[in-house]
Design a protein around this nucleic acid. Structure first.
Lengths: 253, 253
DNA sequence: TACTACATCTCGCAT
DNA sequence: ATGCGAGGTGTAGTA
């Protein structure tokens, strides 16, 4: 168990050095901003990253209980607590963490220039359809990338074998009502902007919910079962990581 | 700098005790499951919670770079690395973290029975309108909660001053195209299930995007500017935290 | 900046 | 288990 005053000194030093900080502690937390919250005393993990991202994690669950991005952080001893005040002045938000006990404290200047390379997202799925238009149907002709991008968020856009303009919405997971509505919006937008009465709408996804399929058919649209590609198979060849540097892997910020 | 073998021993012991674990380390990570990813070597924070939630955090940003919930975790020395293999057999997912150096290691049996109490969410906003129907317009009569919920996800549902059935969709933030389509879907559902030709649709939110407002009016719906209530003001009375135990505060799991 | 849609979304709730 | 929608969503991409 560390003294609060000792922790305060370590914390101030680590903040000045833009280190990444981890504190295991007994604390309570108050948030005011977009919403307002209170969390009573319990044992948690407080993370402060080098970019002043603050995350308060309880011992279960994937999401932080409280958090703040780009915070101005001020630490002080307040009564019997180590108060860590995190503020985003621009967003008018504040998170106060009152630490009663410190179980452990660690800080380190973590250096990391790598970015995650990810395969299997929706972008790759639409690229896959563009490269393999026969997945939709024989004779499907996608529009050029230039013409395509003029219409904004539509995933895939082209002419079917009968030269009917066709809008395709891709989902990498099971499509629901929201996906059908999204497709509907794009089809209506294209109809009105091009002055067409007939535009085909296709929802391409590995699966679709029952209600969504009913709604899809109500609108005269179609479902096409397509699985999102994972272009690199690490499970079969784990030692050859250069596979990950393939052009197909997309960097994520 | 800790020996990998020493860290492995500490880790195994902490896992057996269901402690929450933090490791500051140089590592690379591979993920295969819903998607597939690779992250080259860099200095990061690896968290393992008592419920086997695994989070790999880079030194910037709010979200973890890699993660896994309910993982089966096996640690071992593999070549020159401490390999932490996290698997979700049911979801057929795997995350491998190869640790090359350990900057620090901490574990503790964090005990926490508290739940976040949150105010200012969408549920509170619709409750607020139900309690103050004049916010929509004089003479607006909400239906009872029972009758209301029979129609599913509609936020607020009632009769306007002219006894026209009215569907209200609430958003606690600026409403976009998706909110308009959601309202549209509910109005259409009510029309068809009740056999009505005229149902009013109102989008209640603090703000709305330009395109969303155009689309809203195209459908003959209305926008009503309403701010989500934050019922408890902690900023004015920070020391009186019993305010947070008010019936208005909702517990979040 | 505002707007739009993705996400290995996560999470809770209802069926 | 599945479906559905909220989230203090965060984040990237684009106009």
């Amino acid at each position: 168990m560390l003294e609060l005053r000792t922790t305060l000194e370590k914390l101030d030093k680590a903040l000045k050095a833009f280190e990444t900080i981890v504190i295991g502690c007994e604390c309570k937390a108050e948030y005011y901003g977009r919403a307002k919250s209170f969390l009573g005393f319990g044992a948690r993990l407080l993370l402060i990253k080098s970019d002043r991202t603050v995350l308060l994690h309880q011992p279960t669950g994937a999401l932080p209980t409280n958090y703040m991005k780009n915070a101005i952080i001020k630490a002080s001893i307040k009564d019997d607590y180590l108060l860590i005040r995190c503020e985003d002045l621009k967003a008018k938000e504040r998170l106060d963490v009152y630490i009663a006990k410190v179980y452990f404290f660690n800080s380190y200047a973590l250096k990391d220039n790598e970015k995650l390379k990810l395969s299997g997202n929706e972008q790759e799925m639409s690229d896959y359809i563009l490269e393999n238009p026969e997945l939709i149907e024989e004779g499907f002709k996608p529009l050029s990338r230039e013409e395509h991008t003029r219409y904004g968020f539509i995933d895939v856009f082209g002419y079917d074998k009968n030269n009917v303009l066709t809008v395709i919405e891709c989902k990498r997971y099971k499509a629901g009502l929201d996906a059908v509505q999204q497709l509907r919006r794009y089809v209506e937008k294209i109809k009105s902007s091009k002055g067409l009465t007939k535009v085909r709408g296709i929802l391409a996804a590995p699966d679709i919910t029952g209600n969504a399929l009913v709604m899809l058919k109500d609108f005269g649209f179609e479902f096409k079962k397509i699985n999102p590609p994972k272009r690199l198979d690490i499970s079969q060849n784990q030692s050859r990581l250069e596979h990950f540097t393939s052009k197909n892997m997309q960097e994520k910020a």
